[in-house]
């Protein structure tokens, strides 16, 4: 934090301690950076930086470990929930979170996230849904919208062939095992505030050793959507949020004695 000597100035915005001073590599208008910041602020506010371990995905956020001031593991594509399970089971005192894209979590790593959630592993997942494979150059993801043009759906996603976009929060909330599942977005300031609250709840659940938590964040990929940053945030509002409704899908029930 830079100390400001000028008495007329008050600091209202500073770099969270959980952040390193590296400049991120994200494209202009990409909301990965906002989501990173909300996680970092939460880690600071809950005072858990020194016992937090992140698990990085394979995707555009693969280098997330450079941007945080916490221990990190870099996982194979989709396997972050398995790494997090291993970590948390042998070192339950650590606060473990995975940060995963929609190709990573909803496609190649679907089995790992479903089973981690079903076992009720007590870690936190930040799931960034930008309806596309960003890192590999804009291919179709399981979350790509019907009719959406990508480099592997050049005529638009055909739901007859590719099926409908997968709704991960809805899918995971069918599990009987207690968990916290919420979908949020970061395309407006109001939504950013709500997302911060959701992320905080998810980490608090872990601190309290309560349950598995997953926060799905609707995110932008202006580069591969072929839109300007402003058009991209509008696209989240008009195209994504009607199909991916925001809200809490599952809350841990009060403990039932068996």
């Amino acid at each position: 934090m830079n100390e400001v000597k000028d008495s007329a100035t008050t600091i209202t915005f500073a770099r969270p301690q959980a952040f390193s001073d590296m400049v991120t590599h994200y494209c202009p208008g990409c909301t990965h950076g906002i989501i990173h910041r909300l996680v970092a602020e939460t880690i600071d506010e809950l005072n858990i930086r020194e016992r937090t371990v992140g698990v990085a995905p394979v995707g555009c956020s693969v280098l997330i470990y450079n941007y945080f001031n916490v221990d990190f593991l870099e996982s194979p594509h989709g396997r972050a929930p398995a790494l997090a399970t291993g970590l948390k089971r042998v070192s339950p005192e650590l606060i473990v979170f995975t940060y995963q894209g929609d190709g990573d979590l909803a496609s190649i790593g679907l089995s790992e996230i479903v089973h981690a959630a079903n076992r009720g592993e007590k870690f936190t997942t930040i799931f960034v849904n930008n309806a596309i494979y960003g890192m590999t150059g804009g291919q179709m993801a399981p979350t790509t919208m019907p009719g959406q043009v990508t480099s592997t759906s050049p005529y638009g996603r055909n739901v007859e062939e590719a099926g409908w976009p997968m709704r991960i929060c809805e899918l995971l909330s069918t599990l009987r095992t207690p968990g916290y599942i919420e979908r949020v977005a970061v395309h407006t300031p109001q939504n950013i505030v709500r997302t911060k609250k959701a992320i905080r709840t998810a980490f608090q659940n872990q601190i309290d050793r309560r349950c598995f938590s997953l926060i799905e964040v609707l995110s932008t990929c202006p580069t591969n959507w072929g839109l300007t940053p402003c058009e991209a945030t509008n696209w989240v509002q008009t195209n994504m949020s009607p199909y991916y409704p925001l809200g809490v899908f599952k809350k841990p029930e009060p403990r039932i004695e068996v």
Partner: peptide, 22 residues
């Protein structure tokens, strides 16, 4: 100790990865 029956050997390998890092 810790005993986890995983969902697959793909997951087993990666659970070991996470756990071994400690």
């Amino acid at each position: 100790g810790v005993f986890v029956q995983a969902e697959s050997e793909v997951a087993v390998g990666n659970m070991l990865f996470g756990a071994a890092s400690t």
